[in-house]
Design a protein around this nucleic acid. Structure first.
Lengths: 122, 122, 122, 122
DNA sequence: GTGGTCTAGACCACC
DNA sequence: GTGGTCTAGACCACA
């Protein structure tokens, strides 16, 4: 996995885990990789993975059983999808639209860009 | 002015200045507010404003005359517009489109959101 | 049985066993459930129950006969009661009183809470 | 400061900070010691202090201004007092009362212990 | 084996 | 100066 340098690694790991859960690759009440395991896979310090897990536990995405590992919470998949969609519609899109206004880009241009994107990303 | 905590304040100030220039509120070869003036207005440490000015000077958006202050470069407005548009089309839009794919949002939903935005931002 | 996450499970199991002995549900020289039995009942790993039994054996609350199981020691009930009372008076109560001081709770409020507790726990 | 070994140091530090805030030694919107400063004072690793601050920030007890330090949130003092009192009345006291029932301690004995405590802690 | 805590020391961006 | 992140390595209790 490659890490982007303008976002904390532990947050990128948390995002990666959310991706897996949202796509149901890791299901409800299923054990996720141990801290050390994932640290080896991602070539990262165990503390960094730990921090990502901690972060997700506070959001109740995952939970821990002592001595046994971390597990996916019930309904986390739907919860993640919902929160991401909310954030997208309420914050990211409006920001984009404001930007379009400022730059004088209209909806036609937007659609043609979308068409182009879809063609080149089959 | 409110600052977003996930972007450096001096960069947000630089953005703000670019906004003014792009919208031609501050015109070519016109003096812009002094570091101290702007610091008072934005309720920010003068060092932070200084850093924003520095940043913009390196990009040749503004220039300084010793003892007189900072001034807007010729053609800065067009330059800013062009750079912003480029970045928007090459980076921001594709990121948004990728996001839409992942969240299962199609072009119809995008358009309806845009309609809604336009109606509520007259 | 529900376990509190801020105390080791094996200690909570040991407490549970002490409860039974103190209340004389499990009497002197009587056999207590086997490790496996109790593990099934409490939905816990047998190792964890084993550890609780080990702990209690060191305190001479229970003893083992090879091949036969674990048994309650003579006088364990009284011993447990005495030790618990001691700890309660010397450590738990003073801690509570210190807490009350800090929170500005006086003896009247304490008594009214006790009244309320007694009424709702008949 | 002495640390108790049966609770994480960073939580004890967080408690200590809450004490200061509750007692209004550190007031609303006032700067609290920097991570490094407190680390030196408490003879602890800066990371450990950082973790305590992080913990309190998530509970909105304190907040951070980049490059400037940590500050006490508005109303944190009252909030801490309220939460501690709630926890005391709803969890700690009932546990104590249950314990009293089990140990055969009545309200008279409780009061005499409280008297004794008050005399010896003037 | 698992999580959890802690230290020591480093580097970075920001104010 | 400030916070924030990351690494390396250690130790502990728990299952």
């Amino acid at each position: 996995m490659e890490f982007n340098s303008d976002k904390a690694i532990y947050l990128q790991i948390a995002d990666y885990i959310c991706d897996q859960i949202q796509m149901k690759k890791w299901k409800s009440n299923e054990k996720i990789p141990s801290v050390r395991e994932l640290a080896v896979i991602l070539e990262v310090n165990p503390n960094t993975v730990m921090r990502a897990y901690d972060h997700l536990q506070q959001q109740e995405i995952i939970y821990t059983k002592r001595g046994m590992g971390y597990f996916v919470n019930e309904h986390s998949s739907a919860k993640i999808l919902k929160e991401r969609k909310d954030q997208f519609l309420k914050e990211e899109l409006p920001a984009i639209f404001r930007r379009m206004q400022m730059l004088g880009i209209n909806s036609n241009e937007l659609l043609s860009q979308l068409d182009y994107f879809n063609k080149t990303n089959v």
